Simulated scan of single mutants.
Amino acid sequence: MAFADQPSYIIKMRAKPGMADRLFHLATVGMEKSGSSDRFIMLREDDDPDVLWNIEVFRSVEAKDGYENSPMADELRDEIIDLLAEPPVRIAAHPYSAIPSLPGDAE
């Protein structure tokens, strides 16, 4: 599988009322600053704008582990958790395909 070494997450978070914009900002800034992701997509539900969906593809297992064990991740995690109305849902996954293809994908 071309993506076997790229761990990924699908994460759902629901912000407390009035905190969604802050949640989206922190989640986006965290992904941009970490540099550990090959790509990520932040989605806001049309029918419930307090819900954030994050699809994140890490560059490698090492990049994921490095980010998850970093001081920045700890700080962001604590601040984000304070903004949530309920526990987040996080599903571990690996990409199956991507268009356009990612660098290094099997041709």
Results as ranks from 00 to 15, higher is better:
D46T: 13
F58N: 04
I41K: 06
T28C: 09
D38N: 00
G35A: 06
V89H: 11
L84D: 13
Q6N: 15
F58G: 07
P103F: 08
I81C: 01
R77E: 12
G66C: 05
M19D: 12
P103M: 11
P87N: 13
L43F: 00
S34R: 03
V61N: 10
A92I: 01
P100L: 11
F24G: 02
K64S: 07
M72L: 13
R44D: 01
E86G: 03
M31Y: 09
Q6A: 11
D78Y: 03
I81F: 11
N54T: 03
A85M: 08
D21P: 05
A93E: 03
V89E: 15
G66H: 07
V61P: 02
A2F: 11
G30R: 01
E32K: 10
G30Q: 03
P49V: 11
E45K: 09
K64L: 12
D105C: 04
S8D: 09
L26T: 05
D74M: 07
E68D: 12
P87D: 13
R14I: 11
A20R: 02
M72V: 07
D38K: 10
E79V: 04
I80V: 15
P100I: 02
A92G: 13
A4C: 00
A106N: 10
G104H: 08
L76F: 06
I80Q: 05
V51L: 07
V51C: 00
